[in-house]
Design a protein around this nucleic acid. Structure first.
Lengths: 253, 253
DNA sequence: CAATCGTTATTTGTATGATAATTAAGGACT
DNA sequence: AGTCCTTAATTATCATACAAATAACGATTG
């Protein structure tokens, strides 16, 4: 269960993120997400981590607290830290999600994401149409304009993300906001993997425009439909990429 | 921005949860959720917290790390800790959600929850019908049986929660799992506030049974419809309670 | 005057070493 | 077989340093 050699320091990844305890949290978090430590397993104790990473106990403890706070661990006196069952993990946490993505087959991840997006985004669009304020509409509109003027390529990612997040904010339901991270990650990573983001900007721009118009008209049904159509097109893009990339990535379990 | 008197120790709530850093995190978290420290505000620095709570800096720092990990804060050298904008909060985290509930008007909270439940639960039921394993079906069935034999009152809460969580697990999409906490909290708190949980168990039991049957038959459409019907009944129950409780709770901002 | 460049002060970050509290596990005694 | 006590392992807390980052200020200079 423990790594074979406790006395050999870990390389600690390449992140520029200068905090040591953050790096430790990332390293340990990655190991949990990749299954090095499975749910139910007891992790090395604090003294072990100190030796493994060559860090002080203070720092190790802060990293462990971070992972506790994200639901990955539960620490108890005399027991140590036990990995929590997956359903307790805060998967929509920014860090946890990024570790999760790193540990997964990208195609699987996109499939999960699209499933959730298809459930939520049409309803988010409908809620936005119903509940948006004037200011929120302006934010959505601005994002759309920026997306249109960027036209294609990497520059269109940021306004595209902003558009969807603005829509989410306009839905005015705090319980939905964690999905912002998922949406952001999905759109950004889609670019990373397809490296073309929107294969056909000439199609995607009007699709977004239809959502915008429906939200501007305060027409929930139309907004819902427009969002569904955009998502179907996105599915098509992913399917194309997925087929093209099929040869790679065998992956274990 | 800071509380008037830094040198007067906080009472630190009544939780039996024996960890000091956990108590600090709860206390500070509560203050953030109730708006004592609004998004964008700089919190007292670590030395201040030490004085306020009479705790060591180590402990204070662990509490602050916890809140950082939940997206409530971001700490930077020489700046201190700044409250993050609401959309970055991990609202579906168990702790954050409980602080949120404590800080909100219960009726508002239920309205938000029901809105999300109505979006997700029918689709969760449909996914469960489509993707469930045999073992998952057994878990759902068991929960239902326990719920039926409990019949009414407080005893029916736990199996009811278990039923919905089992359904969620059977949907087999990790990105949906954070909602388990919301569902759990919604059902549990509904009991706390109505103190009758299901007003009419004779209605709710068959409603749940219909979901179970549809999932057993692997019929997504029927499962979706059955879940919608249950939620509509739940709405009715809440509406009744909400009307009855209208006189109370003026609440400030 | 405006802009640049050090200097300083404040705050978080990391380290060390000690003690306390919790509790699983094993042993002693019925 | 069960109950109670002791022990040991581990996290929890504390106190005290020093390091590192950087915002704020002020001096210097073009």
């Amino acid at each position: 269960m423990n790594p074979g050699n406790l006395h050999q320091k870990k390389p600690l990844a390449k992140t520029n993120d200068s905090n040591l305890h953050r790096k430790l949290a990332q390293s340990i978090g990655n190991q949990i997400l990749t299954g090095v430590y499975a749910p139910g397993a007891i992790l090395p104790n604090e003294a072990d981590w100190c030796r493994i990473y060559g860090a002080s106990r203070t720092t190790v403890r802060e990293a462990v607290k971070t992972l506790n706070a994200k639901g990955l661990l539960k620490s108890r006196t005399k027991i140590g830290s036990r990995v929590e069952p997956r359903e307790n993990w805060n998967i929509l946490d920014r860090d946890v999600l990024s570790w999760h993505i790193a540990a997964m087959d990208p195609r699987e991840f996109f499939a999960s994401v699209q499933q959730v997006r298809k459930i939520l985004e049409p309803e988010i669009a409908a809620l936005a149409a119903a509940n948006r304020t004037a200011a929120q509409l302006r934010t959505i509109t601005q994002a759309f304009e920026d997306m249109r003027s960027a036209k294609r390529g990497r520059d269109s990612v940021e306004p595209d993300v902003r558009f969807h997040l603005a829509l989410l904010a306009a839905a005015n339901n705090a319980l939905l906001s964690p999905f912002g991270i998922m949406i952001e990650s999905a759109l950004t990573n889609m670019f990373e993997f397809t490296s073309t983001h929107n294969a056909e900007p000439d199609i995607f721009i009007p699709r977004h425009e239809n959502i915008l118009k429906a939200v501007a008209r305060a027409n929930p049904k139309a907004a819902r439909r427009a969002a569904q159509i955009l998502l179907d097109d996105t599915d098509t893009t992913i399917a194309g990429f997925s087929k093209a990339a099929k040869a790679k990535k065998p992956r274990k379990s």
